[in-house]
Write a protein that binds this DNA or RNA. Structure first.
Lengths: 222, 222
DNA sequence: TCTCTGGTTTAGTCGTCTCTAAACCATGTT
DNA sequence: AACATGGTTTAGAGACGACTAAACCAGAGA
């Protein structure tokens, strides 16, 4: 009933919605590497299938059933990523693409086995939450590192889109769970002093603005 | 260039060829669960691609390049089966189907990681050899349990086709590597005494003729 | 208000893989 | 030797998902 391609669209829409509340044709097409025309045609089909609400020229939003399906696809994707890094030792900068390629062929039996051998991992290697079987997603209050006030916290997640950036972040210790301190500077400012895992993050200041991809969960202020 | 569907055909042809020297349209179609017409059309395409020689009404044989490609598909399949049983604990009676479903989506990076974490396994869970990266396949001299002379040996492989039969075989201890002794009876005869792993295999006599699926490597006679 | 521009949709095609129905070939049987 | 039968091939068509080119809409700036 719901094709593999449609699953890819569901996941893409889900991801776009988490940052934009409405997924436009272009944004989804870009994410999937297809033409806008193809995405438009697929939106019609998905609306017919009751997975999305479609408003022409404005984009789509997931229906309840669409959202549930989407979380399952995302669960599968993130469990697969976790499996690829933890069990096979594949670098976290490549697992997103690899998981994309293999996930739609994985039977539920296999991904749930991943969950079992991984001890029900809560997050993917980039720090995003893994939805539960019933579709629940743990939400966390975070700020981007660039917008963070002076203080300390732990990295919650980093965007998995760009392998080059990911490899760079790993070299600098900017991985989920790492302790970060912002010592000086205004939120959004250009000059900031940052420590990662206790060490000064040299050269990080310049890159900060690009690093909107890094989200931090701030420590409670005493 | 070579589609996922074509890979499935390659593997099927390879498997049929190992028992029949020439893969007929019908045999391949049955194995893949498609119509003979579809298989015929695909044979034309594969012949155009130089993967098989096609003689109308007689079937196909793999070319050198076709055979190499096929062994790689088979390698992937059997590594995947091994992974499913050894790492995920999925029953050997189900892994053939599961591997079929997921294998064509697995990047080489992943299957070769399977090989690494499995310590370069030599055989699939049913005992079939896993071809090397360069396409070599270890061959073993075997006889079917039904045709075996009085004597002893070890089970080399069992046919993976029928899940019900597989589960039954496992219950009786008829798994690859198990020691078997044929005590009495003529090769191909109806009444035979068989011991499996030292214990008398009760009820096995009747089933022997169905058990052409069990291949045994006989011990050298002293 | 008009127009420009960028994103969106439609129209028309193509490629891949599949199917059923009907024609076809190559056997073994009578 | 004729023929029936079972497997094989062609013919015709449909589902799916992708593309390009062209028409279309909506909001920003003049």
């Amino acid at each position: 009933m719901i094709s593999q391609t449609m699953e890819d669209y569901l996941a893409a829409i889900y991801r776009v919605e988490t940052v934009a509340h409405r997924a436009t044709t272009g944004a989804v097409a870009r994410r999937l590497g297809v033409s806008a025309a193809s995405a438009s045609a697929m939106f019609h089909k998905m609306a017919d299938a009751g997975l999305v609400r479609y408003r022409e020229y404005l984009g789509v939003t997931l229906t309840a059933t669409g959202r549930l399906q989407a979380t399952q696809v995302v669960r599968r994707h993130r469990l697969t990523e976790r499996f690829l890094t933890d069990m096979l030792g594949i670098g976290w900068d490549r697992v997103d693409k690899v998981a994309d390629q293999m996930e739609h062929a994985l039977p539920e039996e296999v991904t749930e086995s991943f969950a079992r051998v991984l001890g029900d991992a809560a997050r993917c290697p980039h720090g995003y939450p893994i939805p539960s079987v019933s579709g629940e997603v743990a939400v966390r209050e975070t700020v981007s590192l660039a917008q963070m006030a002076v203080g300390s916290g732990h990295i919650a997640w980093v965007s998995e889109d760009d392998p080059v950036l990911l490899a760079d972040l790993a070299r600098r210790g900017l991985v989920p769970g790492a302790h970060v301190q912002v010592l000086t500077g205004e939120p959004g400012g250009k000059r900031r002093m940052v420590r990662v895992a206790g060490r000064a993050a040299a050269g990080l200041q310049v890159r900060l603005l690009q690093a909107v991809a890094v989200e931090v969960e701030m420590d409670a202020r005493p």
